[in-house]
Design a protein around this nucleic acid. Structure first.
Lengths: 154, 154
DNA sequence: CGGGAATAGTTGAAATCTAAACGGTCTTGG
DNA sequence: CCAAGACCGTTTAGATTTCAACTATTCCCG
């Protein structure tokens, strides 16, 4: 695919940016996960509840949910299974497609989300946005938007 | 910690940036991981070999390595164990501290790294840097640098 | 010097994630 | 209409990660 001779290597600046991106992203993720753990949720579980809270009827098709969360269908099945056992979510038959399954947030799930949200949002502020200028926020948004669009196509 | 009333919520722009950051980062990670899998390495394993390749004598203390990789000590122990079984790495006694262990890259490990590097670097270029302007690269580097510094302190 | 606290790394079990294969259901071209 | 193929979600097994002990060593302070 890419052989030694024709590879466009990263220059030192790019290497440094890439490493800082990797490291900061990992630390940020780990930190937010630790804070969320106090509320009894993992990052993916929190994002999942957020998606459902925004959906009409607090429910979404499994595969739409998986797509939005950048999760494999298999992983989502497991995650929903665990959350269903805790009563945060429930499965419903999909009226329009007998293959389909709807994941729906319960009232208990909504309560857990409401409890976790202030701490989580505060964490995102304190650990990310508070350290960025307005220009950096715009730049980050534009950059990640482009990267995301590219990866969604390919 | 942060209660409902005093939380500084994210405005719509910030929410959008945060979500795009999360999603793009996950997609990027997943894509690079898939490409690296062809070379028989996971992302953490690749980064681990890179760190060792930069270290004097191709070796580092376990905890220094864990710190650099943003990995728990336990995870590193397991990862090194598996890589040692594959012959990519070996453990050595630490001369200065009898508690310590040095992780050292083998010649075979170096070969695997050299094989994987072109594909991986090309992926980082194609999926990240090729979509960023020079200004966005600078901005991203500065932003992640600040976030990283903050998280290292706290 | 001595003992308590901190540090380094490992261990083993439980939780989570990945990967491949499977059973239903839909869809579409002929 | 009806097979062939695509799609949906699940399942299972294996790999990886987390979490909480645990051992051994070093550090620190009286």
């Amino acid at each position: 695919m890419a052989d030694e001779a024709t590879t466009r290597w990263l220059d030192e600046r790019e290497q440094a940016v890439w490493r800082e991106f990797l490291v900061a992203t990992l630390m940020l993720w780990e930190r937010l996960a630790r804070e969320l753990a106090d509320a009894g949720l993992s990052m993916p579980e929190y994002e999942l509840l957020v998606r459902l809270s925004e959906a009409p009827g607090w429910q979404l098709r499994m595969s739409d949910l998986a797509g939005g969360l950048v999760s494999s269908r298999s992983r989502l099945t497991h995650t929903i299974g665990r959350m269903e056992a805790r009563g945060l979510v429930e499965r419903r038959a999909c009226p329009s497609d007998k293959r389909g399954v709807l994941a729906a947030m319960t009232e208990a799930g909504y309560q857990v989300l409401v409890d976790a949200a202030p701490t989580h949002v505060t964490g995102v502020r304190e650990h990310l946005f508070d350290h960025l200028t307005a220009e950096q926020v715009d730049s980050l948004g534009a950059a990640m938007g482009q990267v995301g669009r590219h990866l969604r196509e390919a």
